[in-house]
Amino acid sequence: MKETNEQVVPRARKAGLVVRDLNDEVLVYDLERDKAHSLNASAAFVWKKCNGRRTVSDVAQQMSKEFKSPADDQAVWLALDQLSKFHLLDEKVTRPAGMPRISRRDMMRVGAAAAFALPVVISIVAPTAANAQTSISPSVCNARVQPNCGGTPCTGGSGGQTCQPFGAVGAGNPCKCQ
């Protein structure tokens, strides 16, 4: 992020991301954190416009044109707050002094950005292969031996669980049905 005459000029992060367009939304996978994000249309628009040269006001103007509806700096900041939180900008951005943080609910209440959906970023932690595996019955769970679990079967199965390392992974540590 650069600041020119106290104007914030955010830059979208490019490195370490897998990006796929989905109609007007964007799907992003963060290879460093193994997290996936879904950016709705307005959040995706703001993110794509963050090139390290445009100010927040510039982006707000372009947003107004794109969505044919007045969009102010607050709508852009609503997107930037989330993009920053999820590490989708090169550097974290902070609002200029004197600009209060307005929640999405407050923005909806005052009717700002009424003609387009307010920027929303939804995030999940990508599952490991074992986490995505189906859970198993108690007897099967108790029979299972996972690597790094001391070579003993899992314990504590009560149904609908998977056998996973309990606590620190390492030789001698038991696995439990969780």
Partner: peptide
């Protein structure tokens, strides 16, 4: 939305990582 649905599918994807 398609994006929300994609996350629901990804959350159950074996080779996601």
């Amino acid at each position: 939305s398609a994006g929300q649905g994609a996350l629901e599918v990804l959350a159950n994807t074996v080779p996601a990582r």
